[in-house]
Design a protein around this nucleic acid. Structure first.
Lengths: 130, 130
DNA sequence: GTGACCTTAACGACGCGTAATTGTGG
DNA sequence: GCCACAATTACGCGTCGTTAAGGTCA
């Protein structure tokens, strides 16, 4: 099994029959998902659909949710909300790191006065940076 | 229309027929919602359901979602996820306030040394305001 | 010309809301 | 004893997945 790098997983390489086989569903089902706005595979010049690995991942998530008893509109909303939850979690983690760093910067701003004179920086005129 | 305080809205006062009327649905529908885990109204000693204002709010949210085409399992998951999103938003807002306050506390911790001097001037920031 | 793709339509299975039935409690 | 509630069952309607039919591109 060939490993795929992050950007390789974005390449649309599977025709609909292969994508359907990979996810274990009927090809027509994929067309339904697309019409309902759950998938948006790439198209070739001739109009054929081409699915990426990310599309396959999403397809598997759709399968999980329908197997759990959701209908397609529910699946769409749930996936949207899950994305939002993940975004907020990342942002929260980032905010906490940012808060620590802001405190740390504040400390440094005052402690700069305390370093040995040889290493001192002229705060009035600036040191060049910033 | 009598206003209800926060804790008044928790009191289970509506029998099923009234609750159904308030939400514009069939009473039997409320029993279905309960069996599917979307509602959990209080019960009287005799076994009758009693709905609170919060139950009615939730009922209206369920109505909105089913009207948007979700089935009941989808409604259940969406409401769960919406609660999670709201929780994360609050936590994020709290984290940002907390970060500002931490920086402010750090400032005060250093500035405390500077205040006792009478007629002191803040040479760093100028002589005037702030 | 033979596949695999495309779209649209038809079918069966299932979920949901309503209504009917029977029993019970205040 | 009456009315509203509880629970189960039956029915109609819409959704979803599959299959089939007919057209198009490589």
């Amino acid at each position: 099994m060939a490993e795929r790098t992050g950007h390789e997983r974005l390449r649309a390489v599977y025709v609909i029959s292969v994508a359907a086989e990979l996810a274990g569903v009927h090809p027509q089902t994929l067309r339904i998902y697309e019409r309902k706005g759950l998938l948006d595979p790439a198209r070739t010049g001739g109009g054929s659909r081409r699915y990426s690995d990310l599309d396959i991942d999403r397809l598997r998530r759709i399968q999980d949710l329908t197997a759990a008893g959701l209908n397609l509109e529910g699946v769409r909303r749930v996936i949207e909300l899950e994305d939002e939850v993940n975004r907020l979690r990342r942002e929260l983690a980032r905010a906490e790191v940012e808060a620590r760093e802001a405190v740390e910067r504040t400390h440094r701003q005052y402690r700069r006065d305390l370093v040995p004179v040889a290493n001192a920086v002229d705060l009035w005129r600036g040191s060049g940076r910033r």
